[in-house]
Design a binder for these strands. Structure first.
Lengths: 115, 115
DNA sequence: CTTACATATGAATATGTGTTCATATTTGAA
DNA sequence: TTCAAATATGAACACATATTCATATGTAAG
């Protein structure tokens, strides 16, 4: 932990950068958001919901996963404020919560397509 | 797997959406990129490199991790084409590879700060 | 050539996580 | 009320992964 590069040249720079770093808590929270996107099942769900509001079984059909797996993932997505839900009788419809979700997806897609 | 919602209303919609879905491979690759961002150590590295080009030991000092841990993570970041490296004698300097990395970080940060 | 520094790497460990399976809950219909 | 459909949930399992520790590699200096 906290080893220091001995070349005096870097020590000053490193201390400057360390002073400008965001709080660990904030960087941790940002990483947590990306972690949610970092699963192919959740990514499928997000892309499907980008196309339309959908219920759980339809999402399971579209993604090729089980109802249970999708339900678990939807709970995670909802806790992370990435999707919202609307109940209509027995059916629960899910949709994306805001524009950030779409923006993040689009930039991620751009990055992948440029490799 | 591939269960279908029995309410005939949804079946048509679900099939439409399924037809419009991106290939699994692409969605998988996008998820892989986000997975790289979804770790607080790597997020610290990315933010530090956003401020300045840095060598391994300086990154270890700045992030409060060991040299070994940082070296392992830098390898992952490099394989994902998120950082590049430049060798100068014994020292290896790392920096961000392109603008997408910064864009993704900024939008992730925006999302977190609006919660 | 020997030493010291910066980095990389492999194995082991511990921890986190996604899926499955069984089952509970909720709601509408018969 | 009884049944079936849609969803949610908990436990168990399998798998991935981040860190640590020891050590190897490469490089410059003495």
């Amino acid at each position: 932990m906290t080893e220091e590069c001995l070349c005096g040249l870097h020590n000053k720079l490193a201390k400057k950068v360390k002073a400008k770093m965001l709080d660990d808590d904030i960087l941790f929270d940002i990483a947590e958001v990306f972690k949610i996107f970092g699963d192919s099942t959740r990514m499928k769900i997000i892309y499907a919901l980008k196309l339309s509001e959908l219920c759980v079984l339809d999402l399971a059909y579209i993604t090729g996963s089980t109802q249970s797996a999708i339900s678990h993932q939807l709970r995670i997505l909802k806790q992370a404020s990435l999707v919202k839900s609307r109940k209509d009788g027995k059916v629960v419809f899910y949709s994306l919560k805001d524009e950030h979700v779409i923006k993040l997806f689009e930039i991620g897609r751009e990055h992948v397509e440029e490799l």
